[in-house]
Nucleic acid binder design. Structure first.
Length: 505
RNA sequence: UGGGUUAUAGUGUAAUGGUAGCACACCAGAUUUUGAUUCUGUUCGUCUAGGUUCGAAUCCUAGUAACCCAACCA
């Protein structure tokens, strides 16, 4: 099937792992934090993780990384599940990092007992100061050398709620002079007296990402834990914790996050757009969120194709939005039922057509025969698009102009005899004659036109409000421009047409 | 100025020492009852400088550029 297609670097790794017998099958996971809606970057990760276990033996878990109760909510859990399903993927197990809070607590105790973790009473400012900078070695916390018993006691008291938020942390004891800032005694647990969307008020201490993610991977026997490039420095800590805890050795692999031109792709920035009302919500059709794309008319198929075409690599990228649009057109071209609509109408009157006559004409629903046909009512007075008429035609113009002929799609050929204008010079009506022998599918007139235009019968038209969406930003990469990314919002990204009667057939 | 990651057409991605290929975009042409679709074609690329080799995008040396790391976020 896709044998011609070369493998990406992750597939290379997996194939060699499978070939060498390191694994008989693989386990991946998609690990969203339920603190926002999924966007196209997530779509990449979803297609990657789920796609890998479609291609190779194994399965993929959905695991919510819910270790920060302050920002997380079940609203997001629900939207995330809906979006993954809509994209066409099924997870093996629905899991939560919070399912493992008891395990993680025991893991912490294990580290303390090994002398590899301690309770720090420094403030966050002190901790930051002692960590120093990447070019300058850090210094040890004054609490670094407490006894194991003391640490065990303090950690239990942290858990029991004896301390206020921010007054104690559990830190791994690694290397304050490491070049990797994450190895300078990283925080493992912090105190947050906050209600958790799943564990309620059971806990007032919560594990940090680094002490939850890798451990959850390990508990689930994840073979290939795939994340984005900014987590590369975390891998050293990921491996350190697994080694010291002597648990299942999951491995982390990193790929470059996906960027799309003329939009932004960070949850923080998307949240700003929502909160500051630059868009109507997470699912605004201009948003690069899955739910926004869905409202915009993108199909799951088109998004999957897009992810597949773009591929996976490790270098920074900004992908042309036009590739995504291409994938959508390719899909829609074969599946979308066509209708005719006139957005900016001018009345066209056929002088030699009977006043009260209505004809039922047949029109194809699309280029593929399987889409079938529909009937269209045709009559003396029609709406046509204002831009399909030119008073003084340009050079290669082959639509309507004074004296010119044009085919009305699926109907007759008409010839423009005259037109009227208002005081301001706007064309108000076009008068035509039609050729009765030129009926579409039954044309014996011998006439030929180069142009074909769409139309809608005035008497039969339905009205609608039309929203025309354009790109949300004026520049290709708003995040890399000077100043605030919001300075580059396209003021014309939404155009609502409702002042005229819009016609739809 | 420490460490890490990455450099191939405008964009994205292949080529694993042996003809730099594919897709999108662009431009041109043909067909067309939606200036769509479809089809054909043109232009355009290995970050730089040295080196190894019969042969280098690939290996070596030295540079350069971009991104990431100093959250009790993930």
């Amino acid at each position: 099937m896709s044998e011609e297609k070369s493998l990406n670097f992750l597939e290379d790794i997996i194939e060699s792992d499978l070939k060498s017998g390191k694994y008989k099958s693989i386990v991946t996971r998609f690990p969203p934090e339920p603190n926002g809606y999924l966007h196209m970057g997530h779509a990449t990760a979803i297609c990657l993780n789920f796609g890998l276990t479609k291609k190779y033996p194994g399965y993929t878990n959905l695991r919510f990384d819910d270790t920060n109760p302050v920002t997380e909510d079940t609203e997001y859990v629900d939207s995330i599940k809906e979006d993954i399903k809509w994209l066409g993927f099924e997870w093996k197990n629905e899991l939560y990092a919070s399912d493992y809070f008891d395990n993680l607590y025991q893991f912490a105790i294990t580290l303390i007992k090994k002398g590899l973790a301690y309770v720090d009473a420094s403030t966050s400012e002190e901790i930051a100061r002692l960590k120093a900078t990447p070019t300058e070695a850090g210094k040890a916390s004054p609490y670094r050398n407490r006894s194991i018993d003391e640490n065990l006691d303090l950690f239990a008291r942290m858990k029991n709620g004896e301390f206020a938020d921010g007054t104690r942390t559990l830190r791994a004891k690694i290397d304050m002079s490491s070049n990797n800032m994450l190895m300078r005694d990283p925080l493992l647990y912090r105190i947050k007296h906050a209600h958790h969307h799943r564990t309620g008020d059971k806990w007032c201490i919560y594990p940090m990402y680094d002490f939850a993610h890798g451990q959850s991977d390990s508990i689930e026997n994840i073979t290939h834990s795939i994340c984005t490039l900014e987590f590369v420095p975390h891998r050293e800590l990921y491996d350190w914790l697994i080694e010291k805890l002597e648990i299942y050795p999951s491995h982390q692999y990193e790929f470059a996050r996906r960027n799309l031109s003329y939009t932004v792709m960070s949850k923080r920035k998307l949240l700003q757009l929502v909160n500051e009302k630059h868009v109507s919500g997470w699912d605004d059709p201009r948003m690069p969120t899955i739910s926004g794309m869905r409202r915009r008319g993108f199909t799951p198929e088109s998004i999957r194709t897009f992810c597949d075409k773009v591929g996976i690599a490790k270098r920074e990228n900004v992908i042309d939005f036009s590739l995504l649009e291409f994938c959508l057109r390719e899909d829609l071209n074969h599946t979308a039922l066509r209708v005719m609509a006139v957005l900016d109408p001018i009345k066209l009157v056929i002088s030699n057509y009977e006043d009260d006559k209505t004809e039922e004409l047949t029109s194809e629903n699309g280029p593929d025969e399987s889409l079938g046909n529909r009937t269209l009512p045709f009559s003396k007075e029609l709406w046509i698009e204002r831009e399909d008429f030119m008073e003084e035609p340009a050079k290669k113009w082959f639509r309507l102009a004074p004296g010119a002929m044009v085919r009305l799609k699926s109907a007759y050929i008409v010839k423009c005899d005259s037109f009227t204008k208002d005081i301001e010079g706007n064309v108000t009506q076009i008068n035509c004659t039609y050729f009765s022998e030129s009926k579409s599918g039954n044309d014996t007139s011998g006439l030929a036109t180069k142009g074909v235009i769409h139309w809608v019968s005035v008497a039969h038209a339905a009205s609608a409000q039309i929203r025309l969406y354009d790109r949300l930003f004026k520049v290709e990469n708003p995040s890399s421009e000077e100043g605030d990314f919001k300075d580059y919002i396209n003021p014309n990204s939404l155009q609502i047409i409702s002042k005229h009667t819009l016609s739809l057939l």
